[in-house]
Each structure stands twice: as structure tokens, then as C-alpha cells.
């Protein structure tokens, strides 16, 4: 059962990559390839197997909250939502156009399902903890998922929120770290690494699980298992920045960059092969 679902998630992730490359044809500027491709499986698993947001009959008390704190992966969210039927093709075609609601960095629009703005790093977990606390106090069943980058863990306010969430036993809150090992200027370990992230999160009172962030089976199991009672959950998803296109992978210069010349064609061929292999 899980294997089937994992397979669906994998196909979905590669379709997202294809969709993002298509979006570059309407974008006039650079796009955040590295951090968007690294979290494709995470988002695919969330949208295909975890979040209940596709059920349009749910009210706000029941509907899960997904917060993209690493707002630069907006295009990954747009593609996932489009493929899930939550964002129209028409809207997707306005990507990065003048006056569009779907901008390069995710901006809040609750009517569209964008719970918060994510451009400024380190803000999402506090907000998510507030949403989780509200649900706890009112016995609402929704769950809160916050996706951050490993570079984003440099931000001090994240650690304020980590302490708060364990203090308040927010076991309806899940933090997912897209741990692709690179930030804008280079390797995260060489900038403000600080040793084992898992040890640090555990010491902050979080139920912490480390997974292969490109393995939808591991992601599904980690996301689907119930939080330990009274503990918020952190999933360190070990990923490859730019995963899916050979020249994006592990090259931090593809953090935010325009595709030039034949690059789009080459990337398209590689992603098409990924999609093709699954069929």
C-alpha cells in the first residue's frame, strides 16, 4: 500500500520539476532552482499523501495548515498545487508577471491556500506554533506543517519558536527541514554549521527523525506517524540541492539563476527522462 503511494509521490515530484521548467518559459527573471528542486519529493508527499487540503468541503478548523517558510521555493509549491488541482493553469500562467498573485517568493493569500508569506526567512515556525497553539486550545483537529531550509536554521527566531513549541507540547506541529547542505553563499556546514542538527533539535525537546528527503516512502512514514504525545516533530529531510537536473545538483550558484541558451532544453531532457522512467 505504502509502496504504491510512494510511487505516486515520486511521479508527482518529477512532474513538478517538469512543470517548474515550463514555468521558466513565462518567467522573465532568475528562479530558485536549487531549493525548489531539492524539496520536490517533500512537497509531493505532503500534497499527495499527508495534507487534507484537497478536500474542499473542510472548514478552517479541520483543514491542515502548510507554511512555506523558505519562500524562495514558491515555484515548487505552485507546481504541486497546480498538479493537485488547487491552482489553475490560468493562474500559473501569470507566474512572475506584473501584478500576479503568484510571485517569485510566496506571498500570503489565504483564499488560494497560501497561509503565510515566506520571503523573509525564520518567520514561519513562530507563526506555525501560534496556529498549532490555537488548535490545541480550541480542540481543532487540523495539523500544522512548516517547511524551512537548513540555511534558514541560521535565523535566531527559529530557535525561539523551537523552544516555545516544546514548552507548549505542540504535538500537532511538524517542522520539515529541507537539508540540502547549501545556502546562497556556499556549504551550510562551512557558514554556520554547528554540528549535528538532529542532536540540537532533540536537545530542544523535539521528536526528531532523519530521512532521505528524496525517498517518498521514508518521507511518508515519517510524516504519517503520529507525533510522540506532547512533543512537536522535526523531520530532517536530507536532500540534494537542485535534485533532478545534473548541472543544478550540489551547485550553489543555481540557488537563484536564469536558464540561458540551451540550458532549459538540457534540463528538460533530463527531467523528461526521469518522468519517462517511471511510466
Amino acid at each position: 500500500m505504502i509502496k504504491d503511494q510512494a510511487q505516486i509521490c515520486h511521479e508527482f515530484a518529477n512532474s513538478m520539476r517538469k512543470k517548474m521548467l515550463e514555468m521558466s518559459e513565462i518567467s522573465s527573471g532568475p528562479m530558485h532552482w536549487g531549493g525548489s528542486f531539492s524539496c520536490a519529493e517533500i512537497l509531493a508527499t505532503l500534497y499527495c499523501a499527508v495534507l487534507n487540503v484537497k478536500d474542499k468541503g473542510l472548514d478552517d478548523m479541520h483543514k491542515d495548515k502548510f507554511l512555506l517558510s523558505k519562500g524562495h521555493a514558491a515555484m515548487a509549491v505552485y507546481s504541486a498545487m497546480n498538479l493537485s488541482g488547487l491552482l489553475s493553469d490560468e493562474l500559473l500562467e501569470t507566474y512572475q508577471q506584473d501584478g500576479s498573485i503568484i510571485s517569485e517568493l510566496l506571498e500570503a493569500d489565504r483564499s488560494l491556500g497560501f497561509e503565510t508569506s515566506g520571503g523573509s526567512l525564520g518567520l514561519g515556525l513562530s507563526y506555525g506554533a501560534g496556529l498549532a497553539l490555537a488548535a490545541k486550545r480550541k480542540n481543532y483537529p487540523y495539523k500544522v506543517y512548516v517547511l524551512v531550509g537548513d540555511g534558514e536554521m541560521n535565523e535566531g527566531s527559529i530557535w525561539e519558536a523551537l523552544m516555545f513549541a516544546s514548552q507548549h507540547r505542540l504535538d500537532n506541529l511538524t517542522l520539515i527541514i529541507d537539508s540540502n547542505g547549501l545556502q546562497s553563499d556556499g556549504p551550510t556546514s562551512e557558514i554556520v554549521g554547528g554540528g549535528s542538527m538532529k542532536d540540537r533539535l532533540c536537545s530542544f525537546g523535539w521528536n526528531t527523525i532523519s530521512v532521505d528527503g528524496h525517498c517518498c516512502k521514508q518521507l511518508t512514514e515519517a510524516l504519517a506517524c503520529s507525533n510522540e504525545k506532547g512533543m512537536p516533530k522535526a523531520i530532517i529531510a536530507n536532500t540534494i540541492k537542485g535534485k533532478g537536473v545534473s548541472f543544478f545538483e550540489n551547485d550553489f550558484t543555481w540557488h537563484d539563476r536564469s536558464l540561458k541558451g540551451t540550458e532549459l532544453e538540457k534540463a528538460g531532457e533530463e527531467v523528461s527522462r526521469l518522468v519517462g522512467n517511471e511510466l
Binding site: 518567520l123 515556525l125 513562530s126 507563526y127 506555525g128 506554533a129 501560534g130 496556529l131 498549532a132 497553539l133 490555537a134 527566531s157 519558536a161 516555545f164
Partner: peptide
């Protein structure tokens, strides 16, 4: 952030 989350 907590206040904003509670206010929603």
C-alpha cells in the same frame, strides 16, 4: 509570530 497565529 505566536500572536499572529493565534489571531487567525
Amino acid at each position: 509570530g505566536i500572536a499572529a497565529g493565534l489571531a487567525m
